[in-house]
Design a protein around this nucleic acid. Structure first.
Lengths: 218, 218
DNA sequence: CGCATTTTTGATACACGTCAATCTCCGTGG
DNA sequence: CCACGGAGATTGACGTGTATCAAAAATGCG
């Protein structure tokens, strides 16, 4: 169930087999769990995709705690406690790699950088729960799409792409309800901010092109 | 305006004079600013009271980013950048002291502990924006009151005390509106969860006794 | 080709936002 | 000492955005 011996080349964790791409680099499908709270393991850097972190409530419930996207470090608490505090689940197809990379490279600055980035991310997540539903969903989409995948030498407003999380996940993040999120996504499509494109491979993973807010649709 | 040379014994910062109690220990009144974003300074440990952290929006607005209570470290990013990322304001009478205490004591574990505590706090703040208004306000109050001031050898459900932040601050934290928060506080009073006690000194600082949720008032 | 799951859409209810009046508390000045 | 004024808090009335309930549509899977 949980991520155990992932320092080897192989490694999956839960459910379906995670596809390993390069050495020490693990991929997860949407909805797949990266690791469970309380279990042992190491920290990771999110290379692509997005991940939700949940904490276990005393009443057994699982509640959204935080969000991680490309570049974020997750599970850093294992360096201190040895086990995870949160449960991590892929919101969209995600790739992660063990962190820190070199075993020597755990300078104080590295930790500090992680700390400050985490604080900033948390502040951003907070703002995803402010304002009206349409705005919140739009901000979440922009945040998820903001991850510039590749092609760094083409800053000409290259069209952003997203694979949206499930409506339920989006609802958990924005503190809205599933149905409301669905309505807002439809609205964003009508407004031309989200443009579905099915072209490539996997059918279930709907990719969207994302545009900045067109004039004042809202 | 901003906290500048606080390594000396004296130190205030903005507005009314901050009362220094012991060496390297600074007190702030409710609503007083501890430091401003972008300014230079050191990190602090919150010894008592509560502090809100705001980030400056691109549009000049200031938006709630995080919450710090007793034991939390704020401004740790200055160790990396030299200047603050957020603006800190006292929600209730607060005391803070420079951190880390000894200049030697910045072991990796110390930073890690700070990191994990910050993550947990952030997760808690997230939950303050879930559920119905009454519940959210109640949770906030419990969180602020949860700081066990002293008397650690009396675990017999010692009555918790709080000085509530301004209604506007509470609204910013819970993502509700000022009026709604006010109504919920009144409701908590009627439910016997909050019990005003005016006994001591300062009149404007209303202290409340806090009880756990009585049966199922909600 | 059906069945389970997720998403979408619709109709209705209600919790919270909004606008506004009043009240309390405190400082200020006559 | 009291009148006055301002800031924050409280309370009321009303409108609206979102939750809720429900059903249909789309999608994935065996």
């Amino acid at each position: 169930m949980q991520q155990t011996e992932n320092s080897t080349e192989r490694s999956g964790s839960a459910g379906k087999p995670a596809v390993k791409v390069k050495r020490r680099l693990v991929s997860f499908a949407r909805g797949q769990r990266l690791y469970a709270a309380e279990t042992r393991g190491n920290a990771w850097r999110v290379l692509s995709g997005s991940v939700r972190l949940d904490r276990h409530q005393p009443d057994g419930e699982q509640s959204f705690a935080s969000l991680a996207i490309s570049g974020d470090i997750i599970g850093a608490e294992t360096l201190l406690f040895g086990h995870y505090t949160f449960t991590a689940t892929a919101l969209s197809p995600a790739m992660i790699a063990p962190w820190p990379e070199g075993r020597a490279a755990l300078a104080g600055d590295s930790l500090l950088a992680t700390l400050t980035k985490a604080e900033r991310r948390a502040a951003e997540v907070i703002t995803l729960r402010c304002g009206q539903a349409a705005e919140r969903v739009r901000r979440l989409v922009m945040m998820l799409a903001h991850a510039p995948e590749k092609n760094p030498e083409n800053p000409t407003a290259a069209e952003l792409r997203v694979v949206l999380p499930s409506r339920q996940d989006m609802a958990d993040i924005t503190a809205l309800k599933l149905e409301t999120v669905s309505r807002m996504v439809s609205q964003l499509r009508q407004a031309g901010i989200l443009d579905p494109l099915r072209q490539d491979g996997h059918p279930s993973l709907r990719r969207f092109a994302v545009r900045e807010a067109a004039s004042e649709s809202f």
